[in-house]
Design a protein around this nucleic acid. Structure first.
Lengths: 194, 194
DNA sequence: GTCTATATAGTGATAGAC
DNA sequence: GTCTATCACTATATAGAC
């Protein structure tokens, strides 16, 4: 479906794919449009035909990736019956995503969006994150999770995961994340279960 | 002691202080040396007399702040007798630091150091973080913490805190963090206690 | 120590041919 | 749709006076 899943022949997708790779390896601000041009093997003119400017490349990236992740989260929630199973499946999904597409996770979770896309309207939340919070709230309401403020329950459940992903991305964790899932999930759930 | 604690008359400290403020509000890459010049009310020439280049400003910032934080962590560890009390005090410290000097915490924890300071030698770890990890390992060894891999225990204990700080910095948490300390600490400790 | 003025290079973005 | 050539600007960094 998305530009990052196939090494697209489609030129627009190739631009996006290349941009994401470079944003990850060099950082957004150190990546020039000329860098993208060179690596994607297209012309400057073509890039500016598809995207108004560099920021719009980042915005497109953000939107398309967010959409994909959100869809998966929805599916996971639909396929699992309770908060425990849902959250665990979500964690497994993010871990696998990090192994398969590290540059994608880096961009969507750890990029400084306000800095990169100042003109975008408050995306910092992200649809997926909102959906996850709703699921947690439901768990609190029905007693699966002990009565915590939502603002605390979220970080309690997923803070460890987020930190592990970050450490993995900067090379400070050697183990593939899925191999740590059982252990970190056990911790996360102990933190919030009644 | 440090440049950020007093609104220094010292010009070098004023440059550092101003740079940190701007790195936080605009981001490192969108802050030009001329911006720093203007806000700090000094000349370009003076900035380049004290610092080789823009990156060295960031490095100095990182080093001096790290040093301060590390010293505090050492003190906290010395003043508390066990892992539980030490880690809780560390969490309280970071929360208070975030309220008092948000731009400092933002820079030291969430800046993309590899991107900003590519020529610096592997600072991503940070002395303070290493020290904290040692304290956790000690807790695992003496049975205060259940037998977890260190790579999992760290994020389990402090992942929630880190995430809360991040959310607070981007304005998605309204409550002052110290008011959430009891609740998040309870979660953190439940996650790792035997 | 502190300043102003300037060199240099690279970046985002456009124009216009094919 | 796709390309090349080029503009206008900004930013880093230096030179050299006081």
């Amino acid at each position: 479906m998305s530009f990052y899943k196939s090494s697209s022949k489609n030129r627009r997708d190739r631009i996006l794919h290349t941009a994401l790779k470079l944003f990850h390896s060099k950082g957004y601000f150190k990546t020039s449009v000329h860098d993208i041009r060179e690596q994607a093997d297209v012309s400057i003119g073509l890039i500016y035909r598809y995207f108004k400017n560099k920021e719009e490349i980042a915005q497109t990236l953000y939107q398309e990736i967010s959409e994909d992740i959100f869809a998966t989260i929805e599916t996971i929630i639909a396929q699992n019956a309770n908060t425990h199973d849902r959250c665990r499946a979500i964690m497994a999904y993010y871990f696998q995503l990090t192994e398969d597409f590290p540059e994608l996770v880096d961009f969507i979770i750890f990029a400084r969006h306000k800095e990169i896309m100042p003109s975008a309207v408050s995306i910092c939340a992200g649809k997926a994150l909102t959906r996850i919070r709703e699921a947690i709230q439901e768990g609190i309401n029905n007693g699966e999770i002990r009565p915590l403020a939502l603002v605390v329950a979220g970080p309690s459940l997923f803070g460890g995961m987020t930190r592990l992903i970050q450490l993995r991305l900067i090379g400070m964790v050697q183990e593939p994340l899925p191999s740590l899932l059982d252990e970190i999930w056990e911790s996360a759930w102990r933190a919030v279960k009644p």
